[in-house]
Amino acid sequence: MSEDLIIKQVIGTDKIIHEPARIVLLAILNAAEQVDFTFLLNETGLSQGNLSSHLSKLEKAGYVSIEKTFYKKRPRTLISMNKKGKSAFEEYLKTMREFYKKL
């Protein structure tokens, strides 16, 4: 891939994904099939409000599915990555890896 093309791709990269907290969230969701809100809270160290905000952005972009259920009479929110989210994340990783190789 030419350097010009790589630079253009990096500049035009998905801004929804290209944010440290959301990269970590998607990396976790890429490894697991489904997790709950508590799990993400513990893993990322983000505050409840901050995490909710990032998940809302990812949900609006159609990258994750958020499902509210109950477990042992307590509310539990389950999060999983969609196919759209997986392909967008793979594309993002591919672009960034190409870019970092050239540095």
Binding site: A31, A32, Q34, T38, F39, L40, L41, N42, Y71
Partner: peptide, 12 residues
């Protein structure tokens, strides 16, 4: 209770 719920993908 501390870690939360996680379901792993079959391949991973």
């Amino acid at each position: 209770p501390r870690i939360g719920y996680i379901k792993m993908q079959p391949v991973k």
